[in-house]
């Protein structure tokens, strides 16, 4: 099977690149497009650090053959900070000390973004469930749960103002 040109919409931008047969979405992002926020951890879908959003849904990109998502919309951590400003989830991770080594952080933030997109007011249990596919070896998880709840609160507080300013 020959290599082929694959086209993706990555963080809102149309990107084309040559993908070797069987190339994963993770390898394509990291090696073809230079987007290295998503990390290669276990490479078998067990640790979640490679999580990106495919059409808004969190997927472990190490298990996705890139041809199977051709033309779809991919969101990575690089697309989260709008204009270089940290968004609510990122700033809450900083303020709540939700990182140590940082290897899980990109995946944690992407599952948090997906959670808050579909549920702006999650419970503690909702957050725990959302991050249950993501491994963290440093923090003991609690600061991450607290940060995501805090991000949800900040985003809810901001939402009415955005509506009012329209």
């Amino acid at each position: 099977m020959p290599s082929q040109i694959v086209s993706l919409v990555v963080n809102g931008e149309q990107r084309e690149f040559i993908a070797a047969p069987g190339a994963t979405l993770l390898a394509s992002l990291r090696e073809s497009l230079g987007l290295t926020a998503a990390k290669r951890g276990c490479a078998q879908g067990a640790c979640g650090t490679c999580t990106v959003l495919v059409d808004g849904r969190p997927e472990v990109s190490c298990l996705v053959a890139v041809e199977t998502v051709a033309g779809r919309s991919i969101r990575t951590l690089e697309g989260v900070a709008a204009g270089g400003e940290l968004d609510e989830v990122q700033s809450a991770f900083v303020d709540c000390f939700a990182t140590q080594c940082g290897f899980c952080t990109a995946g944690m933030i992407m599952v948090a973004e997906a959670l808050l997109d579909r549920n702006p007011d999650p419970s503690d249990e909702d957050v725990v469930e959302a991050i249950s596919g993501n491994v963290c070896r440093c923090t003991g998880y609690r600061p991450i749960v607290i940060a995501i709840l805090e991000a949800a609160r900040r985003r809810r507080e901001q939402a009415p103002q955005e509506v009012a300013s329209r």
Partner: peptide
Amino acid sequence: RDFAGYLMPGPADIPLQ
């Protein structure tokens, strides 16, 4: 055989500290 079967506590298994 691998990390997929290596048990660790997840976010639901954490004690109050």
